[in-house]
Amino acid sequence: MSTATVTPVTAVTPKARRSTSSRITLGVTIAAIVVLIIGTLTTDGFYSLANGKAILNAATIVGIIAIGMTYVVISGNLFSLSVGVTAAVCAMTFLWALNYGMVAAIVITLAFGAIVIGLQGLLVGTTGANPIMVTIGAGALQEAVATWVSAGVSVYPPEGANYAWLAAPLFGIPFPVYVFIAMTIIGELVLKRSRFGRSLFLMGESPRAGRASGLSIATLTTGAFVVLGLCTAAAGILIGAFNQSGTLTATGTLTVDSISAVLVGGTAVIGGRGSVLRTAIGALVVSAIEDLLLIRGFSTPVQLLVLGLIVSAVVVLSQINSGRSNR
């Protein structure tokens, strides 16, 4: 499998890496500006406060999950293909757990997300199993168990539960936006300033070098997945609060949107390079593009088509640019 055989062909110096990183940041920023200009010039209603809020709202949920996904991608474990299902299950869990109060519901949901996705990381980290296949299988399992437990019906919060503030505006800006901003700052700081974050970069760049320098691949992989689990659970809580009901079909294209945000943000798909801040911009770009297509009357399949073309182009350009290939 290519994931196992990817080897650096040429040594990438720190200076070259910084230069590549700057080019990607510049590229993402230019892409965002181009989307905004095209949208404004060609589409009525795109450049408006209401639409700006709509884009920000959509980017919030995608972005929160994408923050966690950035950790997994940087660690060299590709991506998870089941975060959409987990977010939906977390939304159901949160609404059910409101029976025990708001704080308990948040703690239970975060713990649930961290455990469910963390276990997948543990499996991947300890055995070296393929992360894509493990996460696809885990998605099918979660879907089956959730259908079994919920008897296939929607989950509703208990009468009188006070949770609506989680989706309501605060000083004119929706509350989830504050969560997104806070998580972006914390995510970037942990990734760039902590030992855990720096170890993830090293492991993603070269697992062999990481192992030789005493890093525990299993612990780090599990840690990256736990971060993804916490982010997915946080998104699930906000989805549950916004929809006021929980179903398995509530998250639509969330999985591919979050992966797209990470890749558009310039995080290298083969690991070792990336940034939470750029992922956040990537989430905004993805949401702005989807919003633009929606306003212009294009259906969901066209949005998928455009997203697919963008993801393919970004992957090709990013890997050619990085000078790493498995040829």
Binding site: S2, L78, F79, V256, L263, V306, L309, S312, Q319
Partner: peptide
């Protein structure tokens, strides 16, 4: 020498679209 999982994820979205 592009990672096939990444490129076919994009391809998957295009085909589905």
């Amino acid at each position: 020498g592009i990672n096939s999982m990444a490129i076919t994820l994009g391809g998957s979205l295009v085909a589905l679209g």
